[in-house]
Design a protein around this nucleic acid. Structure first.
Lengths: 139, 139
DNA sequence: CTCCGTGCAAAGCGTTTGCACGGCG
DNA sequence: CGCCGTGCAAACGCTTTGCACGGAG
């Protein structure tokens, strides 16, 4: 998703476009992989040394509600990445760098009907491992 | 997995069989669904009012290492259930009661080879929703 | 000018750790 | 009787919240 689209969306929803907020979104877009609140804070602090965790978390909560970011959890902390709400998809997540690549198929489709009477409200399918780049860095 | 087998396993590994430890394992077996440390504590406290969270957590860590319990996370807390290490499988997890049922197929098998150079170290595939029983309770 | 968003500080929650005692082996 | 496991308490890390000020609309 591009920055302008997101800002328009926020404005429509009645949210103000503060400099901090814009910078937070920008750095999430720049990262384009799962990062922690801390990672985002450090990025944003390069331009706004004053920003605090609360601002990061509050904005992440809003962005997550609006499906601007996807949220998951590993290493004992929440991780966030810019979302592509257009198409339903799943990730290969590198536990070293958080880099993600998209799986070509949603496994839920392959399991159609297997759930029976269970009313599905959500699902999580993530493959953890080490991406090619990080494997080479380790050698 | 049955209690005796687990206790033998623990003994083999050099762990002592304290009453608290046995009770912790027993209540996890009895639950047979994803429960939180708090849930386990409350169960165990019925027989040992003195037990504390530390004991629960320390034992859960050991049991998780030995693959006696499976660990996941939702509702912002770690959840544990007795594992069936014999066969690789995945769960439908009810977000109301933690009840799980087993999926007939591992979706990773269906996606064989899709990961490319990504070195897979683990994966998580869980479907969240409301199980049949909880749907009826809500009505 | 009105409120929403911010920064500060402190609290909240689940979880982990240091310590000394008690009980398993 | 040695040492692991326990309970207590305190610390921990991540995240959330109350408050008063400042800036966007």
């Amino acid at each position: 998703m591009e920055l302008d689209k997101i800002l328009d969306n926020l404005k429509e929803q009645g949210y103000k476009l503060t400099e901090q907020r814009k910078e937070i979104i920008q750095s999430i877009i720049n990262e384009d992989r799962y990062v922690s609140a801390k990672d985002i804070l450090q990025q944003v602090q390069q331009r706004f040394p004053g920003v605090s965790f609360d601002t990061i978390y509050r904005n992440l909560a809003i962005l997550s509600d609006l499906d601007v970011v996807e949220e998951t959890r590993f290493d004992g902390e929440a991780k966030f990445r810019i979302s592509c709400i257009d198409d339903h998809h799943h990730h290969l997540v590198c536990e070293e760098c958080g880099e993600t690549s998209v799986l070509p198929e949603c496994p839920l489709n392959l399991l159609q009907g297997m759930a029976g009477e269970f009313k599905i409200t959500g699902h999580r399918f993530e493959i953890y491992g080490i991406c090619e780049k990080c494997q080479q860095n380790k050698k």
